[in-house]
């Protein structure tokens, strides 16, 4: 499932995030940050929707999704 989709949007589920920082480390565009142990989208415009965060999030707390269906 190649994630090359401009209409997708970055979504997060705070209560699933355990603050491990893996997504932040491997986001190529420095879009993310861990704030008081939970993921925070600091710079959404820079997100190139590569999906590396979704691929490597151990807790499924960040992902790309079409606004309505998929």
């Amino acid at each position: 499932m190649v994630i090359s989709n401009t209409d997708k949007e970055l979504k997060i589920i705070e209560k699933w995030c355990k603050g491990c920082g893996i997504c932040v480390e491997f986001c190529p565009k420095d879009v993310l940050e861990v704030l008081d142990e939970t993921i925070f989208i600091r710079d959404l415009e820079n997100c190139i929707k590569c999906g590396f965060c979704e691929l490597r999030c151990p807790d499924y707390a960040i992902y790309l999704e079409g606004d309505s269906n998929e």
Binding site: M1, K11, I13, K15, W16, K18, G19, C20, G21, I22, E54, L55, R56, C57, P58, D59, Y60, A61, Y63, L64, E65, E70
Partner: peptide, 30 residues
């Protein structure tokens, strides 16, 4: 309740899973 992949294939009501923060198992399971 998570991405389409998660909704389609997981018992979402059982998430989040028990593995520690940063444990690689969640990545492998996905």
């Amino acid at each position: 309740t998570g991405s389409q992949l998660i909704k389609n294939n997981f018992r979402v009501e059982k998430l989040p899973h028990i593995w520690c923060p940063g444990c690689g198992h969640g990545i492998l399971m996905r």
